[in-house]
Deep mutational scan, measured.
Amino acid sequence: MQIFVKTLTGKTITLEVEPSDTIENVKAKIQDKEGIPPDQQRLIFAGKQLEDGRTLSDYNIQKESTLHLVLR
């Protein structure tokens, strides 16, 4: 499924993921596309910060959901 990741600069990254993918996994995909190390990434969905060990389905993230990427 496709999800979108919006950065603070207003750029939107499109990722191909599975509901069973972990947040860690998603961060690795963002690193592949954008070169941002996962340890600098914070992903936010519905106002919650997403934890590395959880999966997209844990957070009920469905196709075409938009996550927000904050760098630390």
Rank of each mutant, 00 (worst) to 15 (best):
M1A: 04
M1D: 12
M1S: 11
Q2E: 05
Q2S: 09
Q2Y: 11
Q2M: 14
Q2K: 13
I3H: 00
I3D: 00
I3V: 06
I3S: 00
F4A: 04
F4Q: 05
F4P: 01
F4S: 09
V5S: 01
K6P: 01
T7L: 05
T7G: 08
T7H: 09
T7V: 13
T7F: 04
L8T: 06
L8S: 10
L8M: 13
L8A: 15
T9Y: 10
T9I: 08
T9S: 07
G10K: 11
G10I: 14
G10A: 10
G10H: 05
K11S: 10
K11Q: 12
K11M: 15
T12M: 06
T12N: 07
T12H: 08
T12F: 13
T12Q: 07
I13M: 05
I13A: 03
I13P: 00
T14G: 06
L15H: 00
E16T: 12
V17W: 03
E18V: 10
E18R: 08
E18K: 09
E18Q: 04
E18N: 07
P19K: 15
P19W: 06
P19H: 10
P19G: 07
S20Q: 08
S20L: 05
S20N: 10
D21Y: 10
D21P: 00
D21V: 04
T22P: 13
T22M: 04
T22C: 02
I23G: 03
I23L: 12
I23V: 15
I23M: 15
E24Q: 08
E24C: 03
E24V: 13
N25Q: 06
N25E: 05
V26M: 05
V26L: 09
V26E: 00
V26S: 01
V26T: 06
K27R: 11
K27A: 02
K27N: 02
A28R: 10
A28Y: 15
K29P: 00
K29E: 09
K29Q: 12
K29W: 11
I30W: 01
I30C: 02
I30A: 02
Q31F: 11
Q31I: 03
D32M: 04
K33R: 08
E34W: 13
E34I: 14
E34L: 07
G35I: 04
G35S: 13
I36H: 13
I36A: 09
I36Y: 10
P37S: 13
P37N: 06
P37I: 12
P38N: 06
P38W: 15
P38E: 07
D39V: 15
D39I: 10
D39M: 06
D39A: 06
D39Y: 10
D39H: 15
Q40H: 09
Q40K: 04
Q40F: 06
Q40W: 13
Q40A: 15
Q41S: 12
Q41Y: 06
Q41D: 01
Q41G: 06
Q41E: 02
R42W: 08
R42E: 08
L43W: 01
L43V: 03
L43R: 00
L43E: 00
I44M: 06
I44C: 03
I44K: 11
I44Y: 10
I44R: 14
I44H: 12
I44V: 09
F45K: 05
F45V: 11
F45S: 13
A46I: 11
A46S: 07
G47V: 03
K48N: 10
K48T: 12
K48F: 07
Q49H: 06
L50Q: 00
L50K: 00
E51Q: 15
E51D: 12
E51H: 13
D52N: 07
D52C: 03
G53V: 09
G53S: 12
G53W: 11
G53I: 14
G53F: 08
G53K: 12
G53P: 10
G53C: 03
R54W: 15
R54F: 09
R54L: 11
T55I: 09
T55P: 04
L56T: 03
L56I: 15
L56H: 00
S57A: 04
D58L: 06
D58V: 06
D58C: 02
D58Y: 07
Y59K: 01
Y59L: 08
Y59V: 03
Y59A: 15
N60C: 03
N60G: 06
N60P: 03
N60A: 09
N60R: 08
N60L: 07
N60Y: 12
N60V: 07
I61Y: 01
I61K: 00
I61S: 01
I61N: 00
I61A: 02
Q62L: 11
Q62F: 10
Q62I: 08
K63T: 14
K63Q: 13
E64M: 06
E64Q: 04
E64S: 11
E64A: 05
E64W: 11
S65Q: 13
S65W: 09
S65N: 13
L67T: 02
L67C: 01
H68L: 05
L69P: 00
L69N: 01
L69A: 03
L69V: 11
V70F: 12
V70H: 05
V70Y: 05
V70P: 01
L71T: 05
L71K: 13
L71Q: 15
L71P: 05
R72G: 10
R72N: 07
R72A: 04
R72Y: 10
